[in-house]
Each structure stands twice: as structure tokens, then as C-alpha cells.
Amino acid sequence: MNASRRTALLSVAASAALTLSLTACQGGEGTKAEGTAAAQTATSPASAPASGTASGTGGSKGAAVGTAHKSDSTGSGSAAAGGSTAAQGTGGSSATTPVCAAKDVKVSAERQDGPPYTHIVLTARNTSGSRCRMAGFPHIQFLESHKQDVPSVAKSKPAAPTVLNPGDPAYALVKLSDGGVDEDNEVVTAFQLVLEGDSTVIAVDSSTGGGLAVDPARTLTGYWTGELRNGADDF
């Protein structure tokens, strides 16, 4: 084989090899491109469930908001109802009624039963134009020589506060002595008392019938009540 023909054959062979190489490269790129496209195609449908999940989440959030709103509404309704009930309770409760002061009442004393006269009944009448509450018991001092308040009797305390409308009276039973002839009694024609919650001194006239025979060692007082009760006020 001469040199020129050999050169020609080598040239043809190199050309063919180059063509095959280019074809193979193009085929690879095509496959890669198709793979990428396929991957995108595969990814695209997956986005639909993601969108559905977001929609579902939005629905859940909406439901949660709705539930929260319903709960708030219910809570508000309950609070309003509770507030209304509390308001009604407050309106009917004697705890909010102001305590009667000395300026609100007129206090008088009358002998009870007798003779011997061992007890008096104090009457405190509401002379004001509004309701008030008689708190506790009268703090009484009969004699200048005995500054201690007359002791109270616990069993006479009423179960509920004594609330007075304008013109209403409250009563307190007061023991003066045991009624014995040998008691160390002193005649009292006037005495003083103060109401619980007010330091104003109220002077009470007891001169009728020659005054009251008081034994300071035997005196007792009951609580203010709407009426005198047998048993609780028997002391």
C-alpha cells in the first residue's frame, strides 16, 4: 500500500471516529435533558398535594379561628351572665348597705315587764331618707364611775344583718340587774351609747318612772335585731 492511500484511509477512519464520538455525546446530552425534564414533570404533580396541604392547613386555621371565636363568644356570654348575676346579687345584698350612723337614727329606751324592772328595750328608728344597716350591738355606758361598755350576748346576734328602710325600727334588749333587793344598784336617769362604726355619743333619757336601777356587775346587751326573739334575746 502506498503512502498516499494509507494516509487517505487513516483520514477516513479518524473522521468516522469523530462522527461516532459526536453522536454519542449528543445522545448523552439528550438523555440528560430528558431526565431533567422528567424530573421536572415528576416534581410538578407533587406540587399539587403541597397546594392541597396548604389549603387544608388554611381550612384548619379557619376552623381554629372559628372555634376560638365561638369559645370567646361563649366566654363573653358566660362573663356577661355572671356579671349580671353578680350585679343582681350585689343589688340584693345587705353588705353594700351603709352602716347606720348616729345622725340616721333616733334612740329611745323603755322598761320591759316588771316590777322589778330588770330589762329595758332600746329602739333605734331610722329617721333618715335612705336605707342603712344596724351593725353589731349598742356600746353602752350607764355610769360615769364605770367606763367599760356593757358586755354583749353572742347568742342574740342575728343570722343576717339588720337593714332598716326609712322609718323602720331596730331593737336591742338590755339587762340592768338581777332584780335582787340586796344588789348594789345605782339609779340612772340618763346614759350614753355609741353605734358600731360611729364614735358619735348618743344620749338616752331614762328618767321616766324615777330612773333605772342598774347593777354594773350584771348588765348585758343584745345585738340590734329587726324584732325581739324569744330564747335568743332571753338573758
Rank of each mutant, 00 (worst) to 15 (best):
S130H: 06
N2P: 07
G75D: 12
V163S: 00
V153T: 09
G231I: 07
S11Q: 09
P115K: 09
P161F: 04
L18Q: 14
G197T: 02
G179W: 04
L176N: 05
T19C: 12
E144M: 08
G89Q: 13
F142N: 05
E144Q: 13
L9H: 12
S145Y: 01
V150W: 00
H69R: 13
V214E: 04
Y223P: 01
A14E: 08
V121Q: 08
G77Q: 09
D198S: 07
V163G: 00
R6N: 11
V188Q: 08
P161G: 03
A17M: 12
D184N: 15
S71R: 11
S152D: 08
P116E: 01
P169R: 01
R133I: 01
T189V: 14
A190Y: 06
A13C: 07
L220G: 04
A42H: 09
G197K: 06
R218Q: 15
A14Y: 05
T127A: 04
V65N: 10
A232C: 03
L18H: 08
K103D: 14
T97A: 06
K175S: 06
P161M: 01
S4D: 15
A190E: 14
V201F: 06
D168K: 11
A101D: 02
S73E: 12
K157P: 00
R111P: 03
Q26M: 13
I120Y: 02
A232F: 00
D198I: 07
A48K: 14
